[in-house]
């Protein structure tokens, strides 16, 4: 990643940006860490590899400095949504694009007992989102470093297994989700890590009236997560960070993806962040939207 280092150095030396947000290596899995580099001489620390799992775009809002940021293809979609929501103008950061052929799944890495990153990432160790990735190279990059990755055939389907899973009847589903969410510890890492959860006053802070009771109990947790599914509807870019962060392995994206799948069907193939011109479904309407559930 010599080119990344050189470009970052140049940006800092020429004072084009105040900080370069990227990845540096770490002795612990996934063997990188987020890096905030402000001095040209520190640019040597920068790396990009299959352990660069973090979605760094969540650091952009409220940063207060002009950044250059390393962004993978899938994550760039989040920037598009932020732009559509008027949260982050495109000219407030410099986008360093990379080619990414897949990231490790930290859990699989840990379970496999690896003590370093594998040279060649096998599908077994790869994050599931990477198996159906259709955007390996960051579009819209201001500076592209390294080689472009040739697109590979997806190995799984984006919405694989969802129809079967959600074919269960309501009672079973309700039982399943209350059970799963009963182990949630309400650490809010899923919310805080999400590039699109930027509300300064999350509804879960509000306690007069208290919309979402805070004590951990199955139904309270269920309610919090229902609210989060609602927040992510039509906005989730499927970067997978929430699931990666969750200390108790809650399969949050099963719900987020299900709603995304439905939205894709309802609203003319909409997929969050794919197209700047197509507004997020809840910011928009169409007179011809399906109305068959209305009495």
């Amino acid at each position: 990643m010599e080119q990344l280092i050189q470009e970052a150095k140049k940006l800092l030396e020429e004072n084009k940006v105040d900080v370069v947000i990227g990845y540096r290596s770490s002795p612990l899995p996934p063997f990188t860490r987020p890096a905030f580099i402000r001095r040209p001489e520190d640019c040597e620390q920068l790396v990009f590899n299959c352990g660069s799992v973090y979605n760094l775009t969540r650091y952009l809002i409220g940063l207060g400095e002009k950044p250059a940021i390393v962004v993978k293809g899938c994550e760039q979609r989040g920037l598009v949504v932020l732009e559509q929501e008027n949260m982050l103008p495109r000219d407030s950061y410099l986008l360093i694009g990379v080619g990414c052929s897949g990231q490790v799944d930290e859990r699989k890495l840990r379970e496999g007992g690896f003590d370093r990153l594998p040279e060649q990432l096998s599908d077994e160790l790869m994050a599931d989102k990477c198996l159906y990735c259709d955007q390996h190279n960051t579009p819209d990059a201001d500076i592209f470093v390294g080689d472009e990755v040739e697109s590979v055939e997806p190995r799984t389907e984006r919405y694989a297994g969802l129809d079967e899973f959600f074919a269960q009847d309501y009672e079973e589903l309700y039982h399943h989700w209350t059970e799963v969410f009963s182990r949630c510890i309400r650490c809010y890492a899923c919310r805080n890590i999400c590039p699109l959860c930027y509300c300064e006053q999350c509804i879960s802070y509000v306690n007069m009236p208290q919309w979402l009771p805070r004590s951990v109990a199955d139904n309270n947790n269920y309610l919090f997560h229902m609210r989060r599914v609602l927040c992510m509807a039509g906005r989730c870019i499927d970067c997978g960070e929430c699931e990666r962060a969750c200390p108790v392995d809650i399969p949050l994206r099963t719900l987020y993806k299900r709603i995304a799948q439905k939205i894709e069907g309802f609203f003319y193939g909409y997929r969050a962040g794919n197209n700047r011109e197509q507004l997020p479904p809840l910011q928009d309407f169409n007179k011809d939207d399906s109305a068959d559930f209305i009495l």
Partner: peptide, 15 residues
């Protein structure tokens, strides 16, 4: 510069 990557979740304090 101590922990600029902190996202302010509750994990570390809860565990």
């Amino acid at each position: 510069e101590i922990a600029p990557a902190c996202i302010g979740c509750g994990i570390c304090t809860f565990v």
